[in-house]
Design a protein around this nucleic acid. Structure first.
Length: 569
RNA sequence: CGGGGUGUAGCUCAGUAUGGUUAGAGUACCUGGUUUGGGACCAGGGGGUCGAAGGUUCGAGUCCUUUCACCCCGACCA
């Protein structure tokens, strides 16, 4: 491509609403442009990178025997009613009517559509397993789109669905897909971790997320420094606690604690470690029908993990409760405790099971109990509801220490089981001739988000740094001065030769000055820029490596071979 | 959905407290010239319903009302 003819509107100005490096540079370098909140155009460069990523994904999917399909973007609302997800997705589903007043939904993911496609077309266990996938635009009317391509409303996703006759076979496929996903991210040149994830209310026996490590990531993940354990903070658990602080000694007693309502002041008052205090967190749990105030009790040294808490209750969500609501419910804020408590539902963290020497609220203003032993509460609801912290021990090896880091969720794979096949009555005949719902897996990967993730990991203050596998063009041949006939003809020849060898090459033949074109090349981030300039008089050209910004002098007459060799490694 | 902010040239923004020539700058774009190894310079030029609607006024980018869009924090996010 000749740069003088290319539609690559680069700009020196930062778009006023861009925060993330990927958003800033992809906009400035002319890869994408924003249309509306969460809606983006892909310009020629952006489209080329998308295709590169898609090609790698297709390649790896084919290698594991998955078959590509393309399902309709517009989906009938009935399917969503049948699966029950019309309520679950709520306003995220963009609905509209056609001229006949029929309701449709823009597909946010395609479980229902895929099950519907396979249902009654795959009838026998002999046809299983089957794995179908597509790479397709999705639409979710996000409450708050942000960060450019990271969280947009319209986005490109690869979504795959596998159908099995046994759980063992699902497990096998799940592991196969996990390995393929690892190869994809490795080929894209990304540093990532596979983490255990919250399966959420979608159910299923397990799910894993693929996290690209980046400070700008929206997810927090816990990583063991000793073994392979890694988990989303929403699902992370911790091993046995080391260095337990010394327990305070006290007989069971009711103790006056005037106006002492916070963990800090209580710890100071009693001179005990917060580990031996009981913290109460009140939330309103929202269910399909109605909602309840629920009290969560945990150690004063811990914090409540919302997602774990939701799962413990099988609730839809938790919302904050105001001080007034608590008082109306008869709760004595600042002095709530699990002993002799039946004002509302309560859940205790597992670390409180049989805990001894504890201090907790007495459910009476200005009083706490000290020296409490929780063995009497053995029949209460216990669940793991605490959030792991930096420094907690690893639940797997119990030797390593967990550290927290940020990640970008670029993939999520699920063992779905029969959730959707049962709801949509998608069944096959097993070996005994009996009807059974398909056992399913579902595997998502955010293609447009990956594009942004590559830049989050590969950029500097000058712009993008594309890897060879993702670059829109590998080589940029820059002519320093187009009025110099020698430079012009040499560069054009080199450009044609590279093209003939199948190299994706850009020829910067614009009537601009040296500095302007260099800055532009650095912003776009071609892996290599060939500088055809002054040095040509001495029979030399230069090759700039975008990653290191180092310029290497090459002999002009052997430059073609040197360059070809350089990009083949 | 709750809280906050911003809408003026393709882009980045002045101008709005206190209403008053023909609404500005930089950048980008077009023409001509100079320049050609790190976003150059000179001269000329095109480009605007000041987000939209209504109102106050002799007069509104500026004041009032309504509304829309976008951004940020939070809630939410298979």
């Amino acid at each position: 491509m000749r740069r003088s003819k290319a539609f690559i509107p680069t700009t020196k100005e930062v778009p006023n609403d861009a925060v993330l490096a990927s958003h800033i540079f992809l906009s400035r370098a002319g890869f994408i442009s924003q249309v509306s909140s969460g809606l983006y155009n892909f310009l020629p460069l952006g489209k080329r990178v998308l295709k590169k990523i898609e090609t790698i994904v297709n390649d790896e999917m084919e290698s594991i025997g998955a078959q590509e399909v393309e399902l309709s973007f517009v989906t009938p609302v009935e399917l969503w009613q049948e699966s029950g997800r019309i309520e679950k997705f709520g306003k995220e589903l963009l609905r509209f009517k056609d001229r006949k007043e029929n309701l449709f939904v823009l597909g946010p993911t395609h479980e229902e559509m895929m099950v519907n496609l396979v249902c009654n077309r795959v009838n026998s266990y002999k046809q299983l397993p089957m794995h179908l996938y597509q790479i397709k635009t999705k639409f979710r009317d996000e409450a708050r789109p942000r960060f450019g391509l990271m969280r947009s409303r319209e986005f490109v996703m690869k979504d795959g669905y596998s159908f099995h006759s046994s759980t063992e076979d699902l497990n096998r496929e799940f592991a196969t897909v996990e390995a393929a996903y690892q190869r994809i991210l490795t080929r894209l040149g990304l540093e990532f971790r596979i983490v255990e994830a919250d399966s959420g209310t979608i159910g299923g026996s397990g799910s894993k997320e693929l996290m690209v490590i980046a400070d700008s990531g929206e997810d927090t993940i816990a990583i063991c420094d000793h073994c392979q354990y890694a988990a989303n903070i929403e699902a992370a658990v911790r091993g046995s606690k080391k260095d337990i602080p010394e327990a305070p000694e006290a007989e069971f007693n009711r103790f006056m604690t005037p106006d002492i309502t916070t963990i800090e002041s209580l710890a100071y008052f009693f001179k005990v470690d917060p580990y031996y205090l009981v913290k109460a967190v009140a939330k309103r749990a929202v269910y399909d029908e109605g909602s309840d105030i629920v009290l969560f009790f945990l150690r004063g040294s811990d914090t409540l993990q919302d997602v774990k808490a939701v799962n413990a209750l099988h609730a839809l969500e938790l919302v904050d409760v105001s001080e007034e609501e608590l008082q109306e419910a008869g709760l004595i804020t600042g002095f709530m405790g699990p002993l002799n408590f039946n004002t509302c539902k309560m859940v205790l963290d597992v670390s409180l099971k049989n805990a001894d020497a504890m201090i907790c609220g007495a459910n009476e203003k200005d009083y706490h109990y000290v020296g409490v032993n929780f063995s009497a509460l053995i029949n209460a609801d216990f669940a793991d509801i605490t959030e792991v912290c930096e420094g907690d021990s690893c639940p797997h090896c119990d030797e390593g220490i967990l550290s927290l880091t940020k990640g970008i969720e670029v993939g999520h794979i699920f063992k779905l089981g029969t959730t959707y096949s049962a709801a949509l009555k998608a069944e096959f005949l097993n070996e005994k001739g009996q009807r059974e719902p398909f056992i399913m897996g579902t595997y998502g990967m955010g293609i447009s988000r990956l594009l942004a993730a590559v830049i989050e990991q590969h950029h500097d203050d000058r712009g993008c740094i594309w890897t060879l596998s993702t670059a829109p063009y590998i080589i940029n041949v820059m002519i320093s001065n187009i009025k110099d006939d020698q430079q012009m003809s040499f560069a054009q020849t080199l450009y044609e030769q590279l093209k003939q060898r199948g190299v994706e090459v850009m020829l910067d033949d614009r009537k601009e000055r040296f500095g302007f074109k260099m800055k532009d090349a650095e912003l776009i981030g071609f892996p290599y820029t060939v500088i055809v300039g002054k040095e040509l008089m001495n029979g030399n050209i230069q090759l700039m490596d975008r990653a290191t910004l180092e310029q290497e002098t090459l002999a002009a007459d052997t430059a073609l071979e040197t360059i070809l060799q350089r990009i083949s490694t």
